[in-house]
Design a binder for these strands. Structure first.
Length: 481
RNA sequence: GGCCCCUUGGUCAAGCGGUCUAAGACACCGCCCUUUCACGGCGGUAACGGGGGUUCGAGUCCCCCAGGGGUCACCA
């Protein structure tokens, strides 16, 4: 088998979408698994909507996810340029061939005319599709109109009574009847080629062996096959992966909340978690393990194990995976990740007062309590929000046995060096007062934090510091007396 | 509407004619650990869309129907 070469070809009309990211990922995985190559190219022929900023944002997102490529944007290569708008002369050559061989023709219809045609077809109960009106214009008419300065589009002459067959690597054999397809535009009146045409030329010129893309492109494939055939070009293999749906089973869109990769980054998801999660949407490894490193995924990835059915984006699972990755981080790495969130929080000043030991403990306590980095903000309130004694807390504080516990705490809290000593000390109160642990911990917790739940009490005390803790308990003691 | 794709538990999914009285994971529920919450451990509820075939035997193959999705642009 020849070396495989795949590509990811986004159109820079918006940020990288979750679905696009997965297409990129599957291409990347195929390339790496087979020791082939990945090309990144920009399909920017929609002049209206394409923006260079989006291209940059997409590239940044891909890099963030952990995807790199061997040829194309930013890295260069021998088949450039890698932006379609910079390849216009290349397409012209093929357009000319199609025109000369009478497989394409000029179309002078205006938007309005086409619109009207569509309306009438609808009214007749038929569906839109170009009538072929300009197909039989004589050479003289064409010449005349051109001379008048009219700007025509160029349409491909769809052969009739032909069946186009796609042997799709994930869907199997799919047939399309050419009679259901109207003559389509390959070059717009502004001289820019359309997707269905440019994509073929690029894939051929760049030596793409496998086209792996979203299923929404399956219906377009016969049009592309026509171009390959008309130009006598070798067709690549195709693999159409199913779409990612929202929880209402519709194609993922803004309505479903965050759909772009940058949004997930901003929410504090880790790139390795997204990488893992996206790989598992539509693909599954042989084993039962769900948490897989990029290398493990690469070595296990094959198109044969890609599912045909669409997948609903399951945020719960993403959350769980992200949590797993947070748990796996070593301390310093986690600290580095969390620091910015600590510094941006309303409690940044409190955090700044902590010494290294306290800060390290805070990071470790946070580890088990957050799902994504963004949770740090609200979790921090558990540590640094001033106590507000709610009804439940007051009830516990005003119970009979509370006073002696608080007094014992104030009188006996040792000059500890680590949180474990605090734990031991509180345990010792349970013994000396002959109380259940709960009847010691809860009054203290409520006195200290105002709440009946939260992180381990010794950790909280350690992070607040001895003086602050004592002072809080003293105040409560006075209040309830 | 035409064409095309898809259909296993709430979700992701394994299964590629017999070992399926159907795996695993997320979520959910229960129990345990525990001062509480979280973490962790253990266990549980829960599925082959419907109908016809083919076959000794069908979740697995074929057909029909239903449902969902995609596509029919001078967008990709």
């Amino acid at each position: 088998m020849n070396k495989i070469k795949v590509r990811f070809a986004p159109s820079p009309t918006g940020p990288l979408h979750i679905g696009g990211a997965r297409s990129a990922l599957f291409n990347y995985l195929s390339a790496r698994h087979n020791r082939g190559e990945l090309v990144l190219r920009s399909e920017d022929t929609d002049l209206e909507r394409s923006r260079r900023e989006y291209e940059e944002e997409i590239i940044e997102s891909l890099r963030w996810l952990g995807i790199d490529w061997d040829e194309g944007l930013e890295v260069g290569g021998e088949n450039g340029p890698y932006r379609q708008t910079e390849r216009l002369n290349l397409y012209n050559e093929y357009t000319a061939r199609l025109l000369e061989s009478d497989q394409a023709y000029y179309c002078f219809c205006s938007e309005e005319e086409l619109e009207e045609e569509r309306r009438q077809a609808m009214a007749r109960g038929q569906m839109p599709g170009y009538s072929g009106k300009c197909r039989y214009l004589t050479a003289e008419e064409v010449k005349a109109r051109l001379a008048q300065g009219q700007k025509p589009a160029i349409r491909f002459k769809v052969p009739s009574n032909r069946v186009y067959v796609v042997d799709d690597l994930v869907r199997g054999r799919v047939n399309f009847d050419s009679n259901n397809i109207g003559d389509f535009i390959i070059v717009k009146s502004d001289g820019i080629p359309t997707y269905n045409f440019a994509v073929v030329i690029d894939d051929v010129l760049m030596g793409i062996s496998h086209v792996i893309r979203a299923e929404e492109h399956l219906s377009n494939t016969p049009r592309q096959l026509m171009i390959y055939d008309a130009l006598n070009l070798k067709r690549p293999e195709f693999a159409h992966i199913s779409l990612i749906l929202g929880d209402d089973r519709q194609k993922m869109s803004k309505r479903h909340g965050a759909t772009s990769l940058v949004q997930y980054r901003e929410m504090g998801y880790l790139p390795e978690a997204l990488f893992n999660f996206l790989a598992l949407l539509g693909w599954s490894p042989e084993g039962e393990e769900q948490i897989l490193s990029p290398d493990e995924i690469i070595s296990a990835f094959t198109l044969e194990r890609v599912a045909k059915n669409p997948a609903v984006f399951d945020l719960d699972k993403l959350n769980w995976i992200n949590q797993q990755y947070i748990k796996q981080k070593d301390h310093e790495e986690l600290k580095t990740l969390i620091m910015p969130y600590l510094q941006e929080s309303p409690y940044a000043e409190d955090v700044a007062r902590l010494d290294k030991v306290q800060l390290d403990l805070l990071v470790e306590v946070l580890r088990d309590r957050i799902i994504c980095l963004n949770d740090v903000g609200k979790e921090l309130a558990e540590f640094f929000a001033l106590p507000e004694y709610d009804a439940g807390a007051m009830e516990i504080l005003q119970a009979d046995g509370t006073e002696p516990v608080l007094e014992a705490f104030i009188n006996g809290l040792p000059d500890y060096k680590e949180a474990a000593e605090i734990q031991q000390f509180i345990k010792s109160i349970t013994k000396s007062l002959k109380l259940k642990p709960k009847n010691v911990f809860m009054p203290l917790r409520c006195a200290l934090s105002g709440k009946s739940h939260g992180p381990d009490l010794p950790y909280l005390i350690f992070i607040w510091g001895r003086e602050e803790s004592l002072s809080r308990v003293r105040q409560v003691l006075e209040m309830i007396k």
